[in-house]
Design a protein around this nucleic acid. Structure first.
Lengths: 138, 138
DNA sequence: TGACAAATGCAACTAAGTTGCATTATAATT
DNA sequence: AATTATAATGCAACTTAGTTGCATTTGTCA
């Protein structure tokens, strides 16, 4: 938890209990979290006081500083995961579990190819695979 | 236009003027369209009578039958393009222009790789590159 | 410990998308 | 051409994600 405080200090953000809890939940979640997920998690610790405006503001602050990363899948809902390392996702259409994939090298080749063939200046990309996770495809 | 009527007949949908116009606009647009785009286009032909409920219902009907395809980019808004052929997109962060890319062969390799390494059953994927289009990067 | 800026709660708002119901239009049938 | 069943539409009310202005509270640092 002191790591998180340190991280906030570096980024000149105040280490408030709510902010620490938000970061902590996002960091320790195996799947990206949306506003509702976090609100119900936080309401347990904060006596049902959490308001969505705080959460949405926090998402903006933290993702602008790259402490968390915003993901948008096909349902159009914003979810957040810890950190800023780029990766790709396997998304189960049945149970919504999200698994991480590292395909950076493969994608670099593709980006190079596109660079060769177009004058488009790519700044980032998203790649998501949808289907059934091992337990839902039994 | 008779092609579209034919297409609707095959899919057992009535060829109403509104439906034909929606399909026609989506077919002839170089960039995917959302509800607002279509509503303002249609209001010119239909004396400002278009309601969003019709549009959203139409999107559902037409995309379930694969006459159009729903796309969701990072802003979370649903856009629609004609047909069902899978492709990838270059999206300009500045002017929002969307360009199509065909990378099917490259992606098939990636899917095969994932199949080898996981037990996830992929049914489809999305791949979008964000950045600046040639005219916006000048 | 005091002061200032940042963080929060609250409530009202916007905008995307949905739904039930009454009405209208299409297409197949006679 | 008239009839009819069904699909399509308009309307209005609703839901839900996300935003914003403002007053209050809380961390931080001098």
């Amino acid at each position: 938890m002191d790591e998180l405080k340190q991280l906030l200090k570096i980024n000149k953000l105040k280490a408030t209990p709510i902010r620490l809890a938000i970061l902590d939940f996002i960091k320790n979640s195996s799947t990206p979290l949306n506003e509702l997920d976090l609100r119900s998690l936080l309401n347990k610790s904060f006596k049902n006081k959490m308001t969505k405006s705080t959460l949405y503001r926090e998402f903006k602050t933290l993702s602008q500083l790259s402490l968390i990363k915003e993901l948008v899948f096909k349902d159009g809902i914003r979810r957040y995961e810890f950190g800023n390392h780029h990766c790709h996702h396997l998304i189960c259409s049945n149970c919504s579990t999200v698994t991480h994939l590292v395909l950076e090298k493969d994608l670099e080749k593709l980006e190079a190819k596109i660079k060769r063939n177009t004058n488009f200046k790519i700044s980032f990309h998203t790649l998501e695979f949808y289907g059934l996770c091992p337990s839902c495809s039994l």
